[in-house]
């Protein structure tokens, strides 16, 4: 952590619910999710497929597809109330204040427009600059994400670039207007590990340069350990544990967090992996009580009856478990 994160949150979300109506019933993809993202920090939202981590951030961006119902108590972005903002206001915030990098760079870029046209369009629509200036700025931007011979490749099309280069271009388009918040949704999942290392270094560098906060969505605990200061773990649409990366990786409090870590293989040691039995629950009819109870190894009487609330004993650390593995009150 080269910079001390500012304590004021740049993004504050409280009580976020997202549900989808489907043929088989209502799917509660996200339930009562709250988090604060401080200026300049990296907060990782971690979970497996279907945990609601991507949908939560899409709801914040206002880009949830399908017939979704979104409710929240609070959703504030850099002084703007997203709950009362109209479409036009939100559109202006996207790009300038909050921006998104997707996992799949090939489908996020327009295949029939050259890179220069796609990046230039951002400058022309948001900043109203001339075509020539937009082009020059685009070349500068591509240099800032270390795309080799940016001035020669500006007229190339997405398919002419490698996966790593496309991800650089996508990051370039996301940071073009110097947003305060970058949501990086599995930004390296589709990449080879040596290229992943480069992209993560690039994100570090841009964060230092622009002072932006990053909300990192990932399933990869290694990426969390490498990038983030704080982590929020999601399971079945709810937050189950939050805290600093150092605290949580040293002593996870929620049995799901602990089980997730135990199931991840490590290079240095050969131990038998401990998988989590079963599979994630059906979000149309989640189990009563704690959604993790059918897979949990620390089951108590309350777990199948009462849903545990997310409670914090110490500032910055909380968990939703009746029988946590470490009493958060004693951590510190």
């Amino acid at each position: 952590m080269t910079k001390q994160a500012d304590e004021r949150p740049v993004l504050s979300v409280s009580g976020l619910d997202v549900s989808f109506r489907t043929m088989r019933g209502e799917v509660k993809a996200v339930s009562d999710v709250s988090f604060d993202l401080k200026r300049g920090e990296v907060l990782a939202l971690v979970g497996e497929s279907g945990s609601g981590k991507s949908v939560s951030t899409r709801a914040v961006m206002g880009i949830v597809r399908g017939n979704a119902t979104i409710n929240a108590r609070r959703m504030e972005l850099a002084g703007h109330d997203l709950l009362t903002a109209d479409e036009e206001q939100k559109r202006k915030l996207r790009g300038r204040v909050i921006s998104l990098v997707f996992q799949d760079a090939l489908s996020a870029l327009n295949p029939v427009l050259s890179i220069g046209d796609q990046l230039g369009e951002l400058y022309r629509t948001h900043l109203n600059v001339s075509k020539k200036e937009a082009r020059e700025r685009s070349i500068e931007l591509l240099r800032s994400v270390h795309l080799a011979s940016a001035d020669k490749r500006i007229d190339d099309y997405p398919h002419q670039f490698s996966g790593g280069m496309r991800q650089r271009i996508l990051i370039a388009s996301a940071i073009a207007l110097k947003p305060e918040v970058l949501i990086a949704d599995e930004p390296t999942t589709a990449l080879d590990v040596t290229v992943q290392a480069q992209i993560l270094d690039l994100l570090d560098e841009l964060r230092d340069e622009l002072g932006m906060a990053i909300l990192l969505i990932t399933h990869d605990l290694g990426v969390v350990a490498r990038m983030a200061e704080r982590v929020a773990v999601m399971y079945a649409g709810r937050l189950v544990e939050t805290g600093s990366v150092d605290d949580i990786f040293r002593a996870p409090s929620h049995p799901y967090t602990a089980a997730l870590m135990a199931s991840a293989p490590r290079i240095e040691t050969v131990e038998k992996l401990e998988p989590i039995k079963g599979s994630p629950p059906n979000l149309i009819a989640p189990p009563p009580g704690c959604a993790f109870n059918p897979r949990c190894t620390h089951l108590g009487d309350l777990c199948t009856k009462v849903r545990p609330e997310l409670i914090g004993d110490l500032p910055g650390r909380s968990r939703a478990c009746h029988y946590p593995l470490v009493e958060t009150a004693h951590v510190g």
Binding site: D192, A197, Q198, L200, D201, G222, A225
Partner: peptide
């Protein structure tokens, strides 16, 4: 060595060692 250095493990102290050490270029 490059592959090994790029592989991130769920251990913050170890994973942070990889910062700024990416191997250049792509295949």
């Amino acid at each position: 060595v490059a592959l090994r250095g790029s592989a991130l493990e769920p251990d913050p102290a170890r994973a942070r060692l990889a910062r700024g050490k990416a191997t250049r270029g792509e295949p």
